[in-house]
Write a protein that binds this DNA or RNA. Sequence first.
DNA 1: GTCTATATGACGATAGAC
DNA 2: GTCTATCGTCATATAGAC
Lengths: 226, 226
Amino acid sequence: MAPLPATIDRRHRRRAETIEEILDIAAQIMAEQGVAGLSVGEIARRMGIRPPSVYVYFSSKHALYDALFARGARRLLEAMKSVNAALPAKPATLEEILLPAAQESVRWSIEHAAYSQLLFWRPVPGFTPSTEAYQPAVALTELVRDRLKELQDAGLLRADVAVDQAERDLTILISGVISQQLSNAPQEPFDEGRFSAATPALVSMFADYYSPRRPATETGDRGALR
Amino acid sequence: MAPLPATIDRRHRRRAETIEEILDIAAQIMAEQGVAGLSVGEIARRMGIRPPSVYVYFSSKHALYDALFARGARRLLEAMKSVNAALPAKPATLEEILLPAAQESVRWSIEHAAYSQLLFWRPVPGFTPSTEAYQPAVALTELVRDRLKELQDAGLLRADVAVDQAERDLTILISGVISQQLSNAPQEPFDEGRFSAATPALVSMFADYYSPRRPATETGDRGALR
DNA sequence: GTCTATATGACGATAGAC
DNA sequence: GTCTATCGTCATATAGAC
């Protein structure tokens, strides 16, 4: 006899809840011990089950890391979508848009150091995120690129450079801040970080470089400096 | 009876050689498997000895990582000293000095990805480099800071910003390039790297920002843009 | 369908024989 | 200085209880 739809629903819900619980605890362990410090045994211990039971929900430790990667990328994407939505649609300067976005991505990454290690570094031998898990990360770079394209169309970003290059350079700046902060002073909170404090200066540097050059007749041809 | 000095020398030399051999093989394994993929058993296997014998030379796996950290930092410092010595003593522009130095540090880091992971990231749970192991890394930042101070004294670096800030921002740029290259496309060689290719543009951006502002009477007051 | 008990082989590390 | 033997822990596979 086939089970009633209600039963299937309940089972699916229960299963989904258990998966979420495993991921919650796994993220907590990673936050305490570092990404590579995650152990299936420790997850089971904290859940009050036996280690093999974890394999009912995740076929391997790598599958677990993959789910955690997807989760982190999804959450970072959400955080960036939120800050993006709150920004003015018709900004006056490049910096006005880029600084809040940069600050938010650095803040999120510092406050979720474990996810950041997984997203920005390669701490687990043999683990590479699957295409599906990587998808939100791709969506994030697309979000940035689309935003920069809009800014270029609005005349706030130099028309003579490729949007892809601007996106790449901006990403490098931000990941540099995060990387330095997390590896040299991981315990410093975002607001007191030696390296996260560099974000405004670096965004300013980026904005100067990628803002349209004013014509020579106006305030001097800055392009002539190079 | 006390051993002859010659015997002590020979023992010391033999011991030092074994230590170097262990580090060579360990670095090789890290390069193949990633930093966290290093195992004492694998070292022993490749050396034709038993795992406990490794502990005669290194009291723990962390001590081994510490020696590898020190070695990597020392080698990167040497590479930077070399390129620094080859650069002109009286440069004409900021970029002329910074670009070759930046290129070399990115190149070294990409070509020695395993050491870089250890130096720039925190891939090993519970491992923090000792003060001694960290010393060459400190010497490296001092080398950069001293060079920037010279450039400031020579009038090539803005006098109104702290050298420490310039050093921090430059370090962030470079580590951002390395971090993005190694985490997103670790197999790409330096010359073909998507992210290492950004080095010239980023150094140019840095040089623009940190070069002394020309007075308004000359080519326009760039400072007024901010 | 869900979990447990049990087993395998690798790991880091230690103790003690030679 | 190197070995054997051993401990506890880990990820993981399988077989079976409920």
